[in-house]
Amino acid sequence: MATSLGSTARTGEKCPASGVWEVVGTPSTTAPIAQGNIMPPYRNAAVTWKLKSYA
Protein backbone atom coordinates (compact mmCIF):
# COMPACT_ATOMS: atom_id res chain seq x y z
CA MET A 1 0.00 0.00 0.00
CA ALA A 2 1.32 3.43 -0.93
CA THR A 3 2.19 5.93 1.75
CA SER A 4 -0.09 8.96 1.46
CA LEU A 5 0.86 12.60 1.85
CA GLY A 6 0.43 13.62 5.48
CA SER A 7 1.58 10.23 6.75
CA THR A 8 3.89 10.37 9.76
CA ALA A 9 6.97 8.50 10.94
CA ARG A 10 8.98 8.83 14.14
CA THR A 11 12.72 9.21 14.61
CA GLY A 12 14.31 5.76 14.44
CA GLU A 13 11.68 4.21 12.17
CA LYS A 14 12.35 3.25 8.55
CA CYS A 15 11.19 5.88 6.09
CA PRO A 16 8.04 4.51 4.41
CA ALA A 17 8.32 6.65 1.25
CA SER A 18 10.92 8.81 -0.48
CA GLY A 19 10.08 12.49 -0.35
CA VAL A 20 10.30 15.74 1.52
CA TRP A 21 9.48 15.29 5.19
CA GLU A 22 8.68 18.05 7.70
CA VAL A 23 9.07 18.01 11.47
CA VAL A 24 5.70 18.30 13.24
CA GLY A 25 5.79 21.14 15.79
CA THR A 26 7.99 24.14 16.47
CA PRO A 27 10.75 24.67 15.59
CA SER A 28 10.33 22.82 12.33
CA THR A 29 12.45 21.93 9.32
CA THR A 30 12.15 19.91 6.14
CA ALA A 31 14.48 17.25 4.80
CA PRO A 32 14.60 14.95 1.78
CA ILE A 33 14.59 11.37 3.07
CA ALA A 34 14.76 8.24 0.93
CA GLN A 35 12.54 5.21 1.47
CA GLY A 36 14.22 2.65 3.72
CA ASN A 37 16.48 5.17 5.46
CA ILE A 38 16.12 5.67 9.21
CA MET A 39 14.14 8.77 10.15
CA PRO A 40 16.60 11.17 11.81
CA PRO A 41 16.34 13.16 15.03
CA TYR A 42 16.06 16.95 14.86
CA ARG A 43 18.07 19.14 17.25
CA ASN A 44 19.20 15.97 19.06
CA ALA A 45 15.62 14.99 19.90
CA ALA A 46 13.22 12.32 18.67
CA VAL A 47 10.49 13.92 16.56
CA THR A 48 7.53 13.04 14.37
CA TRP A 49 8.05 13.65 10.64
CA LYS A 50 5.16 14.28 8.20
CA LEU A 51 5.36 13.54 4.48
CA LYS A 52 4.93 16.83 2.55
CA SER A 53 5.69 15.74 -1.02
CA TYR A 54 6.93 12.74 -2.94
CA ALA A 55 10.44 12.59 -4.38
Rank of each mutant, 00 (worst) to 15 (best):
residue 1 M to A: 14
residue 1 M to Q: 07
residue 2 A to S: 12
residue 2 A to L: 09
residue 2 A to F: 07
residue 3 T to C: 07
residue 3 T to N: 10
residue 3 T to A: 13
residue 4 S to K: 15
residue 4 S to D: 14
residue 4 S to T: 15
residue 5 L to M: 13
residue 6 G to T: 02
residue 7 S to H: 08
residue 7 S to C: 12
residue 7 S to T: 13
residue 8 T to R: 10
residue 8 T to A: 07
residue 9 A to D: 03
residue 10 R to M: 11
residue 10 R to P: 03
residue 11 T to F: 01
residue 11 T to E: 04
residue 11 T to L: 02
residue 11 T to Q: 02
residue 11 T to K: 04
residue 12 G to V: 04
residue 13 E to C: 08
residue 13 E to Y: 04
residue 13 E to R: 08
residue 14 K to C: 03
residue 14 K to H: 11
residue 14 K to M: 13
residue 14 K to V: 09
residue 14 K to A: 11
residue 15 C to K: 09
residue 15 C to Y: 12
residue 16 P to G: 14
residue 16 P to H: 10
residue 16 P to V: 08
residue 16 P to C: 09
residue 17 A to R: 15
residue 17 A to M: 09
residue 18 S to A: 05
residue 18 S to K: 03
residue 19 G to M: 04
residue 20 V to M: 12
residue 20 V to I: 15
residue 21 W to T: 11
residue 21 W to D: 12
residue 21 W to E: 13
residue 22 E to N: 04
residue 22 E to L: 02
residue 23 V to K: 00
residue 23 V to E: 00
residue 23 V to M: 01
residue 24 V to F: 00
residue 24 V to G: 01
residue 25 G to D: 01
residue 26 T to L: 11
residue 26 T to A: 08
residue 27 P to M: 06
residue 27 P to T: 11
residue 27 P to G: 09
residue 28 S to P: 03
residue 28 S to F: 02
residue 28 S to H: 04
residue 28 S to C: 02
residue 29 T to W: 00
residue 29 T to V: 10
residue 29 T to A: 09
residue 30 T to V: 12
residue 30 T to I: 08
residue 31 A to T: 01
residue 31 A to W: 01
residue 32 P to K: 14
residue 32 P to V: 13
residue 32 P to A: 10
residue 33 I to H: 12
residue 33 I to A: 11
residue 33 I to Q: 08
residue 33 I to W: 05
residue 34 A to Q: 11
residue 34 A to L: 08
residue 35 Q to D: 06
residue 35 Q to N: 07
residue 35 Q to S: 15
residue 36 G to A: 12
residue 37 N to W: 11
residue 37 N to Q: 15
residue 38 I to E: 13
residue 38 I to N: 09
residue 39 M to G: 05
residue 39 M to W: 04
residue 40 P to D: 08
residue 41 P to T: 00
residue 41 P to A: 01
residue 41 P to Q: 07
residue 41 P to R: 00
residue 41 P to F: 00
residue 42 Y to A: 00
residue 42 Y to Q: 00
residue 42 Y to W: 01
residue 42 Y to G: 00
residue 43 R to E: 13
residue 43 R to W: 05
residue 43 R to S: 13
residue 46 A to Q: 07
residue 46 A to T: 05
residue 46 A to N: 09
residue 46 A to Y: 02
residue 47 V to L: 01
residue 48 T to Q: 13
residue 48 T to M: 14
residue 48 T to I: 12
residue 49 W to C: 04
residue 49 W to D: 04
residue 50 K to D: 00
residue 51 L to C: 10
residue 51 L to Y: 06
residue 52 K to H: 08
residue 52 K to F: 04
residue 52 K to R: 14
residue 53 S to L: 13
residue 53 S to R: 15
residue 54 Y to F: 14
residue 55 A to P: 01
residue 55 A to S: 11
residue 55 A to Y: 06
